[in-house]
């Protein structure tokens, strides 16, 4: 009799251990959708966002955002050239400085996209070779791209200059008539 009770107790003990083990080792929400912890889905989804996108700069830098929107660089992301919003603003206040490329860093930034001598870029994309470009423009090699191209609107000044000289030419032509 004793040995039956004993073995029953052992079996009971094993069953209890399994259920207790399951109780303590199984995370909440395990098996809700499948063989995984369902709560993790929302934990992952709740991770904070670092990139605010261009519209997030609008409130404080509307002129720059507006400029970018109207120029050839409208598809570019502010935060790729600068830094993510999360390193700059928290709760509506500035918490850190943005990276601002200067000097040759600017040329490097531009050439990342516009360098001609890199096989692989689609041919229709506007590309230049710095040496050729500068030779064509008859300028020294130590000039930086932003001295002529407004970074946020690369052809703004160039188009203005073009239309100015066109107007001048027309005015001269008209006077000659």
């Amino acid at each position: 009799m004793r040995h039956i009770v004993k073995s029953l107790l052992i079996v009971l003990g094993i069953v209890a251990t399994i259920f207790l083990g399951r109780h303590f080792l199984t995370p909440d929400s395990w098996g809700k959708y499948g063989h995984y912890r369902a709560d993790y889905i929302d934990e992952e989804a709740n991770r904070s966002i670092n990139y605010g996108e261009n519209d997030s700069c609008l409130k404080c830098h509307s002129e720059v955002v507006d400029m970018l929107k109207h120029g050839e660089h409208k598809t570019l992301s502010c935060e790729v050239c600068h830094s993510p919003l999360s390193e700059h603003i928290a709760d509506g206040k500035k918490i850190g400085s943005m990276k601002v490329p200067t000097g040759n860093e600017i040329d490097k930034t531009c050439l990342n996209c516009h360098q001609k001598n890199v096989a692989g870029r689609p041919h229709k994309f506007p590309m230049i070779d710095k040496n050729e470009h500068y030779k064509m423009l008859e300028i020294r090699a130590d000039h930086n791209c932003n001295q002529c191209h407004t970074v946020h609107y690369p052809k703004e000044n160039i188009n203005k200059a073009k239309s100015l000289s066109r107007n001048l030419r027309e005015a001269v032509d008209n006077e000659a008539k």
Partner: peptide
């Protein structure tokens, strides 16, 4: 292996 031994279902009795 515990999860395998005791199949988990939607009707979890503990949680």
């Amino acid at each position: 292996s515990l999860f395998v031994v005791v199949p988990m279902g939607a009707g979890d009795i503990f949680h």
